[in-house]
Amino acid sequence: MSDRSDAQLIADILGGDVESFSILVHRHRDTCTRFAVRMLGSRTDADDVMQSAFLRAFRGLRKCRDPERFGGWLYQIVINECRTFASRQRRRDARFLADQEVIDRAVSPVEDDSGEAISEHVELALSKLPVDQREAFLLKYVEELSYEEISEITGVGISALKMRVKRACDGLREMLEGVFNG
């Protein structure tokens, strides 16, 4: 689509070539999308968050410390947006989803062991994790970042991250035992 580097594109955008931002969007959109969808459990919500994150990035381009690493910077913004959204979502759910048993039943093992059903169980179990554990698990296990990388992106210390990942794994095991059969 373009052989201009991220830094070149950002320089062009700051110079008034706004259309170059669409190249940045196209280049980095998919990297963050999976994380946002898994974090929020909804493509619609992820769409909102990604729109907001890219707009914030656009508004704050001058504060991008290292334009060559725009992708990592964008990731930080997406994570922050997801946290904010998830926090609002949690408050909303507390109001409208008082019956926790509904979720508990949905996550319990069922007879349907098709790949699609298993994925749904995993996503539901993931959604039950606290936001900080879900975030750490996704970045570590799904996005396969190192603890050092996660710490740099999230601003959370490595020890705390390891504890969050451990608790997330323990929680998933508790919820998913019996879902994977062999």
Binding site: S22, V25, H26, R29, D30, T33, R34, A36, V37, R38, R43, A46, D47, M50, Q51, F54, L55, I118, S119, V122, E123, A125, L126, F137, L138, Y141, V142, A168, C169, L172, R173, L176, E177, F180
Partner: peptide, 23 residues
Amino acid sequence: LAKRAADRLRTPERLAPSFDDRL
């Protein structure tokens, strides 16, 4: 088990085709 769960969550996700235009 966490690894198997992560494998399920690693499938790519795409935003709506209109995403770029709206943004």
